[in-house]
Write a protein that binds this DNA or RNA. Structure first.
Lengths: 216, 216
DNA sequence: CAATGTATCAACACACTGTCGAGTCCGTCA
DNA sequence: TGACGGACTCGACAGTGTGTTGATACATTG
């Protein structure tokens, strides 16, 4: 580890340059955003609100972040990283018990996203209008899909899973289902599955879609 | 089943009152919106653009619609109504051939939404910020889910479908999958299923999830 | 031919975003 | 020590968008 600043792998969307004291200010903006997002949607939060919450003026805000969106992307980055941690481990014990292995894979996302409702809600709100947000989300989906495809193929090869449409196609549909269902549940949409049942239902569909043979 | 179509009284979101000549103007606004939405997202279309496209001034626009959102909701209303038409018929020949019956049910949505990409994209963009849009979409989902639940239960009762989690839960997850997958495909997101395969893949998951027993 | 309702728009009042430039504060080093 | 420069701050401005108001046409139609 180098002695210099704790190498923040954070993308260049944070502060303009520098690395002096105002570090806390940057933090303050982030935590303010997180707090406000629990209360109301992104569209009802202005740069002024963020600045005020961090105890600075609006122009000063722009010293730390180039826009409101950038703040959010930083938050999302963080969350995604957390979610990715659990992903690896889950994919071990497949041969033993597919159902609970798949369940585990889902669970890490469930937990990471579930603990930051404001942020995912905002992310969903941002995606349509912000290309960077779209790209970031695409990446997440893509790794998820890639993982699932590989496993589906492996399960088919060893004869555990039923043959059928290309693994990737199946994976895309299932991952999209997860995304939508979890978003709906966490943002309190109607209709949505309850927090207690989402995981079970989703895993059920996954397992049936992957292992069950197509009827007729 | 009851087929209670969401009573279609023209929503009060059109013109302030009246119903005189300026009818064409209202139309012009609607078609302008539809046209512009094929080119660029809702967030990049201003009331000014809409007004200009319809050959009137911005204030005049407000004589016809209370806001930009209202224009869109009208468009969505229309589209949803079209989509609902095919729904009824599809649900007949289930006993004969479940797969193609389910496929047919999906197809009407596929076609209705696929022919108005701009509008669905805008609808997705609007949903997070506009309560009315959310409510409208909720209704659509709800009828879809209700239908699916009833059928799943019927199929289980007659022994065709496998038992499992409550039909409604299954229906919610599957309908959400459809929604997300179709949106992704039609708005050219990445990753997404191709237009040629979406329907097949979705139907495949539906059939396996409903008729296939849970493996493990 | 008034009177009533339809339709139109210039001008205004706001809200928000992003930028510019003039500052302050503080550590460094000549 | 004192001036130089970089970190940081904010008042004031410019731009773009929304929604409203009030004055004004232009019909009908009673």
């Amino acid at each position: 580890m180098s002695t210099s600043v704790p190498t923040r792998e954070a993308p260049a969307r944070g502060r303009r340059s520098t690395r002096a004291s105002g570090d806390e200010r940057e933090r303050a903006i982030l935590t303010t955003a997180e707090k406000l997002l629990e209360e109301r949607p992104l569209s009802e939060i202005s740069v002024e609100d963020l600045a005020k919450g961090a105890g600075i003026s609006r122009p000063s805000f722009y010293f730390y972040f180039p826009s409101k969106d950038a703040v959010l992307l930083t938050l999302v980055d963080r969350m995604v990283e957390e979610a990715a941690v659990g992903r690896e481990e889950a994919l071990a014990g497949l041969a033993d018990d597919p159902r609970s292995a798949w369940r585990q894979g889902l669970q890490s996302y469930f937990e990471a996203f579930g603990s930051r409702r404001g942020v995912i809600r905002a992310a969903a709100e941002l995606r349509p209008t912000n290309a960077e947000a779209r790209g970031l989300w695409t990446q997440v989906m893509e790794t998820w899909i890639a993982d699932a495809s590989v496993i589906i193929e492996a399960e088919r090869a060893r004869g555990a899973a039923a043959p059928g449409r290309p693994a990737r196609e199946l994976a895309i549909a299932l991952v999209q289902m997860n995304e939508r269902a979890l978003f709906a549940t966490f943002s309190g949409e109607e209709p949505a599955l309850s927090e207690e049942t989402v995981l079970d239902v989703l895993v059920d569909v996954w397992v049936r879609a992957i292992y069950g043979a197509a009827a007729d």
